[in-house]
Amino acid sequence: MMLFTEVRGLPVVLPAEAGPLGTVTSLTVDPASGTVSHLRIRGGRLRRETALAWDAVHTIGPTAVRLRAATAPDTVPPRHDLLGRRVLTEAGTEHGTVLDVAFAPETGRVLTVFTTRGEVPADRMLGLGDYALVVRAG
């Protein structure tokens, strides 16, 4: 298990390359599947923010994110960061703000969303937009 806050800022490297491609700025989540869909990176050889599909990730460790091979940037999905996002139930009841997210680095599967009002299991995520993460009431 890893936390989003542990991944943010890690260098992203390619096999047999000298320097980092960039650093992780955020992870994009697909609430419908409950998985990380993209890795957002910036800096290094990439001057602007770029999104790479999760499939390009080989391993994530405490010191770096390693990609499988040279990967073309993916179509950048809308930027809806989970960290700091307001959390609402489907009925509109406030459930705090997202502090962190636990996920399986091998698969990208989201395990738990940690909010200012407690933990929310990933299977309760319904949608994510500009305004809030919407979860099923528990």
Rank of each mutant, 00 (worst) to 15 (best):
M2P: 02
M2V: 03
M2T: 02
L3E: 06
L3P: 08
F4V: 06
T5S: 14
T5R: 15
E6W: 07
V7C: 03
R8L: 11
G9L: 06
G9Q: 13
G9R: 10
L10K: 00
L10R: 04
L14G: 04
A16G: 15
E17V: 03
E17Y: 13
A18W: 14
G19Q: 13
L21S: 03
G22E: 06
S26I: 07
S26T: 10
S26D: 10
G34A: 12
G34Q: 05
V36F: 05
L39C: 05
I41Y: 05
R45L: 06
R45Q: 11
L46Y: 15
L52P: 03
L52C: 01
A53N: 12
W54H: 02
D55C: 13
I60Q: 01
I60K: 03
P62H: 12
T63Y: 07
R66C: 02
L67H: 03
R68A: 09
A69G: 05
A72W: 05
A72C: 06
P73W: 06
T75D: 05
P77Q: 01
P78R: 04
P78M: 00
H80D: 12
R86L: 14
V87G: 03
A91I: 04
H95T: 04
H95S: 11
G96F: 02
L99S: 05
D100K: 03
A102F: 11
F103C: 01
F103R: 04
A104Q: 11
G108T: 10
V110T: 10
V110P: 01
L111D: 15
L111K: 14
L111I: 13
T112D: 06
T115Y: 05
G118T: 12
E119M: 09
E119N: 13
E119H: 09
V120A: 04
A122D: 01
D123E: 11
D123C: 03
M125N: 14
L126C: 14
G127E: 03
G129A: 14
D130K: 02
A132Y: 07
R136E: 12
R136Y: 08
A137S: 10
A137I: 01
G138C: 06
G138K: 14
